[in-house]
Amino acid sequence: MNKVLLMGQSNVGKSVLFNCLSGGGATVSNYPGTTVDFDKGRMAIDGKIVEIIDVPGTFSLQPKDKAEEVALKMLEGEKDAVVLCVIDSSKIERGLYLALELIEKGCPVIIALNMADVAKDANIRINAEKLEDLLGVPVVTTVATMGEGLKKLVERMKETRSVKIEGIMKSVGGG
């Protein structure tokens, strides 16, 4: 692993996470579409320096504006990168949709269930272990703005792996 792409929908906290992990200066705001171009930084995983890239938010892998085109191009251009898929825990379904798309594409994925504080405020509880069992990729709960869960996220980064969608369908089972 020598590159990490931070991907996720807009306004889920990718840039906050990026700044925490790399000490970088990506612009952070509370509205969708703040990052319209990518930012690059560096972080250490197990003593090894890897490049981390803050990708503009994208709802799905079918781009609908210029910022999303940038996101898709990054993903296609960085074949050897692992993907840190950031999900807004209070809107988990749509985040999972993108995560599944990334998994189907064959990308090695780790999931950050970010904004756990917002989900808690909205009275939404997510069983992260169960989710991890079903998906077969690491799932870590985080609150990037407070720094919660970041250490664990970095520790588990090496467990990132690509899985088959068929396997997920099998472990989830029928409706």
């Binding site: 988990i92 949709y97 599944l100 009275n123 992260a128 409706g175």
Partner: peptide, 19 residues
């Protein structure tokens, strides 16, 4: 895909009362 998302979230997410 949405159907799969639905089934996954049914197994992992519980939504409490809106406060």
């Amino acid at each position: 895909r949405w159907d799969l998302v639905d089934r996954i979230s049914k197994k992992t997410v519980t939504v409490g009362a809106y406060k």
